[in-house]
Nucleic acid binder design. Structure first.
Lengths: 227, 227
DNA sequence: AATTAAGTGGAAGGACTATTCCACTTGGCT
DNA sequence: AGCCAAGTGGAATAGTCCTTCCACTTAATT
């Protein structure tokens, strides 16, 4: 994409060419390890797969969370693209359904991303800004689908987070053995979101509450103090 | 409940009185630790809370799985009781809905049980027999609710397992911070199970497939070889 | 009260992982 | 070509947890 070696990170002094090369090998290795094993994969495994020493990994990404946000930054772009595409769908309901299905498919395809979607990373403002931007698109998708009459009026945008948590549970349990199993519960949920279902529901958690939950999840998996 | 000290386990020689006392303290401690921290809580923490040495814990329960099945055996009785109660409900649909809600509530109340419900323990035949018996009741609950016309015809009993996996995900993520958050996605799912929703769904996993998944989950969390 | 097999606690050993350190290497510049 | 700051790998340290071991204690029996 970019040729400027400084552009890939926000640092003052550009990395030496070999260091930049190693950084990219680390990102590639981390991407596949996180996808296979989740966010708590051993750092040594990532360094080994990248073919560099662990010191190089820790010098470039002092905290696990730095590596995580660097790896999944591009995934958030995919997330955003899926949202944009859904909003552009001439059929509002189909756009909504497609968005939920595709995001759940992203979760199923990447064990790490599955968790990232239900955690927050306050130490990386850019990362959270991307998430917030995609979520704002989703709010529009929801509004449009409600206006079309197909999405029930009491659907709350926060429900997406609950869906992602539920799907993460299914994907974590069924994993590689039944890679399509998640489609069934997601199918049920999508039908429940149809406006033909009008029975009252328990109240959704507030946006702020979910933010606190997502923060807490990050903190418990990263036992080190940040900043 | 029982006064016969041999009755609480299937062993030949009864335990010495002090040993039996320690065994019960261990079970009580493990119950609360598993509930709070999940099935992977440190063994030393359990021994510490029981006020005994770790050796006592390992002598009585050589493998973690032995402790888990001993602790959750009584929970399976609750599970069974909930199923029996649901089947006895004069309103078949209300029985079905109540069963799903109550089992999900059991998951929310106990982090360990939440996982136990989606794992299998082939090394403990009695444990699996109890689970199978409760599941057979659930199959009847399902058949009766379908016959009443309120439960959609394409609901599969295996869907319960997927619901439990999804709920485990929600409960694990929202945890103590939002102890009621699970009610909303479960509410959605229950509405989706209503016969008014007739759109086709992705096929459910077979019973055998889910059995394999549940076995695999047990194996990965217990890295030791069994038997 | 004496005997002894059963039971006990805590230390020790071993596996695994995160993180730091430092002697050595190398890219980029003159 | 030669300098040197930037960069490197792997060893060393530290922390956590599981599991075993063994010298000591105690319940039950006589």
């Amino acid at each position: 994409m970019t040729r400027d070696p400084t552009a890939s990170r926000g640092c003052r002094t550009p990395l030496r060419a070999d260091a930049e090369r190693n950084r990219e090998r680390l990102l590639r290795a981390a991407r596949s390890v996180f996808a296979e094993q989740g966010l708590e994969a051993p750092m040594t495994e990532i360094a080994r797969r990248a073919g560099v020493g662990v010191a190089t990994l820790f010098r470039r990404f002092p905290q696990r969370v730095d590596l995580i946000t660097a790896v999944f930054d591009t995934h958030l772009d995919d997330y955003q693209a899926v949202a944009d595409h859904a909003l552009a769908d001439p059929d509002a309901w189909r756009g909504f359904v497609g968005f939920v299905e595709q995001v759940c498919a992203l979760q199923a395809a990447d064990h790490g991303f599955s968790d990232v979607l239900t955690m927050s990373f306050p130490s990386n403002a850019g990362f959270e800004a991307k998430r917030a931007r995609a979520f704002r698109i989703f709010v529009k998708i929801v509004a449009r689908a409600k206006a079309s009459g197909r999405l029930r009026a009491d659907f709350a945008p926060q429900d997406l987070v609950l869906v992602l948590m539920a799907n993460a549970g299914v994907v974590a349990a069924t994993g590689a053995l039944l890679p399509q199993a998640w489609r069934r519960p997601v199918g049920y949920l999508l039908q429940a979101f149809d406006a033909r279902n009008t029975e009252p529901l328990p109240a959704p958690p507030s946006h702020a509450d979910l933010g606190r939950v997502m923060d807490a999840r990050t903190r418990e998996s990263a036992q080190q103090c940040d900043q």
